[in-house]
Nucleic acid binder design. Structure first.
Lengths: 188, 188
DNA sequence: AACTCACTATACCGTCCGGTATAGTATCTG
DNA sequence: CAGATACTATACCGGACGGTATAGTGAGTT
């Protein structure tokens, strides 16, 4: 495995476990078995390393979300499929998902936050589009698509957060029951 | 106002805006118009300052939650009252609520995380007690009180997070609709 | 007046941080 | 063999960090 990949993997583990700020460039380099200039050769800066890391994971992820979240008239099915994409991605990349969650709650405007913000914005737009289109078919949802999009994302992240802490199993059953709970609330 | 209080207020603002790690002791002291030794006289360490800060806000808050979350047979009313305590506290102390949320997503095991963890554990226990007792009256909830407690907390924090970002109004209407959505999911 | 005690200012400590200047090596191309 | 390119090692920079040793200062007590 090339040094570049080794550095990315080590940085992911360290950032997720102890936070972007708390991990030094020196430490990442040592864990990867290289020296600092090598790291700076590949990524330019500590922030550039984080940027590459996030892009590597988030770009293909959001592409899959894009497909699943496309509304075609069957909202329940769309929600389940979208939730399934999130659950699947979290199960495949638990360490990255933890990092991504932490990044979302770093101080607004800080450098790590800006790195994740652009991807977050894209995901938010996907969800809002989904619920805005679904409004046409469900009159009682009018004007609340912003709230529904955020609540839907919040519910998914609550489930994944619970799983990351070992409190629940992230399986088909949880997916179905969580999506059902969400929809019962919507249609009322 | 005494220096001690001024330091606490300044630390709250700075920690909430830029994060515990990113704010230096020097900066807090300057903002409060005192010098570092004064700060260390009152709080012993940077972490001690955070500890005092969290305790000052969280202790009375959780006392009020304790009262509201006491189950007396009327789950819908209890949930609304509990949610109302959270909404009210967040509206009264938005800056602290933002800090507290961020602290929850700092790296597990890190010093800032440990400070908030003990209060979080207490709140989790309160919610789990509530739902465990409610299970007796609602057979279809058996064995899921851990999930319900976490999902309830997640929903509340999703609402408050939306309000902190200016996306929604944190009013009675949102409270009612969010609690209704949660319960429709439970009773199904 | 003498003493205590709570508090504050000056100046400093060692350590670690992100980042870089410089020099070198291995590999591929001609 | 000569040269270029891509990568890596040694050693260092200025600065900011959390924390402290020392020396006061002012108010209350006896």
């Amino acid at each position: 495995m090339e040094n570049r990949t080794v550095i990315l993997n080590c940085a992911l583990e360290l950032f997720a476990a102890r936070g972007y700020d708390a991990v030094g460039v020196q430490e990442i380099a040592e864990a990867a078995g290289v020296t600092k200039p090598t790291l700076y050769h590949y990524f330019g800066s500590k922030l550039g390393l984080l940027h590459t890391l996030v892009e590597t994971y988030h770009e293909p992820f959001l592409q899959r979300v894009e497909l699943a979240a496309h509304y075609d008239g069957d909202l329940p099915r769309t929600l389940v499929e979208t939730g399934a994409v999130f659950f699947h991605f979290a199960r495949e990349n638990p360490v990255y998902y933890r990092l991504q969650l932490a990044l979302n709650f770093s101080p607004r405007g800080s450098e790590p936050w800006q790195v994740i913000a652009v991807w977050n914005e894209r995901q938010r737009a996907q969800f809002e589009t989904l619920f805005r289109e679904a409004v046409r078919d469900h009159g009682n949802m009018h004007g609340r698509y912003v709230y529904y999009a955020a609540a839907f994302a919040g519910l998914i992240n609550t489930c994944i957060g619970l799983w990351l802490n070992g409190s629940v199993e992230l399986d088909e059953e949880l997916l179905r029951s969580a999506m059902r709970q969400f929809q019962y609330g919507i249609y009322s």
